[in-house]
């Protein structure tokens, strides 16, 4: 059995420091999710509306955000805003801005998809039953949309958590960065630490995302 460098984890507060790094990633994704879900609901509803110009602008925003790798967006905010607006956001703030913009775009697309997946005859039937516009939305459209939407938005949270690993690249100290520090510090005493530590990070990310994915899958199956 070769030395896998797992003993480094128990030295000092290394494991706690790693978990703290995960905490940073989770905090950023939580803040971004909390802002982007209502924003996405609003944008998604607007996208099914009748205003052509508004729809075009939203579509442009949505497609641009979705087609660009999130890392490019992070670079644009982190490096670009300094040059263009003379404003220098911290790495964490840039991350929150990017993930909110991205989350809102993704969410609005999910909302739009859920809204247009309601067949026209649902609206027509409600009208035939004499329901007003508000009643149609409250009792017919929204309940059906929400059922389709909740599993998808939960999935969005796991995607958000996974994507936060990118903040390493704009210099935020999160789990991978902490791991690099730990590995460097223990280079002489346990040269194999890279294997053990990166394996632990892999598993920690898995443990953070897997339960959420399972919940989404369960709800999707239950509400089909």
């Amino acid at each position: 059995m070769p030395d896998l460098g797992l003993d480094v984890l128990w030295k000092g507060s290394n494991l706690l420091r790693l978990l703290g790094g995960l905490g940073v990633a989770l905090r950023i994704s939580l803040i971004a999710v909390v802002i982007s879900i209502p924003l996405g609901l609003l944008l998604g509803t607007l996208m099914t509306g009748k205003n052509v110009i508004l729809k075009f602008i939203l579509k442009l925003y949505l497609e641009f955000i979705r087609i660009m790798p999130q890392l490019v967006l992070l670079f644009m905010v982190f490096f670009g805003s300094t040059r263009m607006f003379g404003w220098q956001p911290s790495g964490e703030l840039s991350a929150i801005i990017v993930f909110t913009l991205w989350g809102a775009a993704e969410m609005s697309d999910l909302v739009r998809g859920a809204l247009i997946s309601i067949p026209v005859h649902q609206y027509e039937s409600s009208e035939a039953l004499g329901l007003t516009k508000v009643q149609t939305y409250c009792y017919v459209v929204i309940p059906q949309t929400v059922r389709r939407l909740i599993p998808l938005s939960i999935n969005l949270i796991t995607r958000m958590i996974k994507t936060t690993s990118l903040i390493l690249m704009i210099g935020v100290v999160e789990m991978i960065k902490v791991a690099q520090q730990i590995i460097e510090a223990n280079r002489t005493t346990s040269p194999n630490a890279a294997f053990g530590i990166y394996l632990v990070i892999f598993l920690l990310y898995f443990l953070a995302c897997w339960p959420i994915s399972l919940l989404a899958k369960y709800l999707e199956r239950k509400w089909r």
Partner: peptide, 24 residues
């Protein structure tokens, strides 16, 4: 499928690139 879908590519890459060489 579960392992690969619930972890970020960046972490997978770090494990493959920096971790695996340690075990040869």
């Amino acid at each position: 499928i579960e392992l690969s879908r619930n972890t970020p590519l960046l972490v997978q890459l770090f494990f493959i690139y920096y971790g695996l060489p340690k075990i040869g």
